[in-house]
Simulated assay, not measured.
Amino acid sequence: MKKRQNVTIKGTKDGIVLHLDDSCSYQELKKELDEKLSANQRTQTERHLTPVKVDVGNRYLTDVQREEIKDLIRQKKNLDVDDIESNVVLKVDVEKLKAENEVVTVARIIRSGQVLEVPGDLLLIGDVNPGGTVIAGGNIFIMGTLKGIAHAGVFGNDQAVIAASSMQPAQLRIHDCINRAPDKAENNEKREMECAYIDDTHQIIVDRLQVLINLRPNLNRFEGGH
């Protein structure tokens, strides 16, 4: 009877993909992985680093086990671990992802000294007064006047936007970009129904709200519950 293979090595144009069986024991897997990589190493002539992607299927790996797999691969000559993929998602990760994609609606005025922070998108029905701050992991939509500080994409989302019925901010932040508002609006112009976003030069641009239709088509995910 042919022995079941727990480790399959497949070469691609981008490097090597290791498929690791998710039904055997972890110790069996490690032992066979070591043997297969050692045998494969003897047949390799390349001298440059080869990227390795690891697919562990439905197996859950602890952080310690992930590091053990990476170390085992890196010990082999000319192999560099690019990524370890698993179909298993922890409950805490699912809850975090859900929170970051959720729209939180708040109806209140953010006064001086107050800070409102949400993990996902923020829809604020009210004003942000001077000295007030709103922070979101995603986008910020303000149905009111923004005179304080707004920080969108706080966890690293540079595609986040800030929109307000009346845009008069003390400061705008998106991801790691900061745009300090001018001392006065030019010609005392009213800045209504505007949005802020990061452009191709990694600068915050304030423009008409309508530009978001083409710039951020993913905002349409709210349409029809998508």
Rank of each mutant, 00 (worst) to 15 (best):
T43H: 08
G153F: 04
F141R: 12
K31V: 01
E117N: 14
V211F: 01
E192H: 07
R173H: 06
G156M: 04
G137P: 05
D55M: 02
S38I: 13
Y60V: 05
A164N: 10
L116H: 02
E85R: 10
E189I: 08
N214C: 13
I125C: 14
C195P: 02
M193A: 15
E67F: 01
V94Y: 02
P130F: 08
E46K: 08
R216T: 03
Q203K: 15
K2H: 00
I135V: 15
E67V: 03
D200T: 15
K10Q: 13
I84E: 09
N6T: 07
G131A: 01
G138M: 11
F141V: 13
K70I: 05
E100D: 10
L37V: 00
I149C: 07
V64D: 05
V7L: 07
A150G: 00
P119Y: 05
T8L: 10
S165K: 12
E32T: 06
D121M: 14
R208C: 10
G137I: 04
D34Y: 07
E189Q: 04
S38W: 01
Q210C: 13
K184V: 15
P217D: 06
S166H: 06
R216D: 07
L219N: 02
D127E: 12
K96D: 06
A150I: 12
D183H: 02
M1H: 02
E32S: 08
Q203V: 00
R180H: 11
K31A: 13
D21R: 05
V118N: 05
N101I: 14
I125T: 15
V115G: 01
I73G: 00
L20T: 02
V52R: 01
R180I: 15
E46D: 06
V7T: 11
S25V: 08
V56S: 06
R42G: 03
V104E: 06
G113T: 01
D176Q: 14
K147R: 14
Q159D: 11
N214G: 15
D63T: 08
I9P: 06
V103E: 10
Y60F: 00
D82L: 14
G156R: 09
F155M: 03
Q41L: 15
N220C: 14
I135L: 09
R74K: 12
G113K: 10
L33N: 00
P119E: 09
D127P: 13
D127Y: 08
E68R: 13
P182Y: 08
H202T: 07
Q65C: 01
S38A: 14
E186Y: 12
L37T: 04
L72K: 10
